[in-house]
Design a protein around this nucleic acid. Structure first.
Lengths: 104, 104
DNA sequence: GCAACACATAAGCGCGTGCTTATGTGTTGT
DNA sequence: ACAACACATAAGCACGCGCTTATGTGTTGC
């Protein structure tokens, strides 16, 4: 079950910050450390967890490793969320529209 | 930040099972224990965590306490997921449509 | 009133998780 | 070749989390 890894990965506040930084675009491990007061190994470990969860994917570029959001993880969360469509309130209609529009 | 509580709550496999049981409709604490090999206090604690995260809400009914999915939690997850709309792939269009349709 | 029941809270314990420092691996440039 | 750099892995440690047993609180029915 990959949901287990996804929610566990997102349960940590530092990992959420990292993941949300990547929402703005691809970044390497060193750049991701900026602002977060964390050691280099800690970042490396966090990225490893995010990668194992399918939330992030990497791409080696010289001696840098660029990380970016993995759409597979997003899809997995969306699919899980779909189980609760019965509890999706009216106001979520607007969100669904937004999601569709921004995808064009 | 309520996202912290949400993802932490969903990180535990037992709590996810409980929450997914509630996707089918309202249930009381004792009924929720069925199938899960867990003590009564453990269930009570899990429900407390889910409630604090805004994922579940309760309604006292005599000496039973009925739990149900709290739409607020679902909305919070949806809103968080919306930050990653740039990485939402085409195939998620179908899901967005489904979510909209089922809400009618 | 009191026994049985449904659930919550308290206290304590073992294990997983995220951190650190130290070291290893691979790449770049001179 | 070698130094500097970017990142990964190893090992050890402290803290948090989920579990248990024990007990408390509130409700129902006789």
């Amino acid at each position: 079950m990959i949901e287990a890894d996804i929610f566990k990965a997102l349960a940590d506040p530092t990992r959420r910050k990292v993941f949300e930084k990547l929402a703005g675009g691809s970044l390497n491990a060193s750049t991701l450390r900026d602002g977060l007061e964390i050691s280099q190994p800690a970042m490396s470990q966090h990225l490893s967890v995010l990668r194992a969860a399918g939330l992030v994917r990497e791409q080696r570029q010289g001696r840098f490793v660029n990380y970016e959001v993995d759409p597979d993880g997003i899809v997995a969360i969306g699919a899980w969320l779909a189980r609760y469509r019965a509890y999706w309130p009216k106001r979520m209609d607007a969100l669904a529209d937004l999601l569709k529009d921004m995808d064009q």
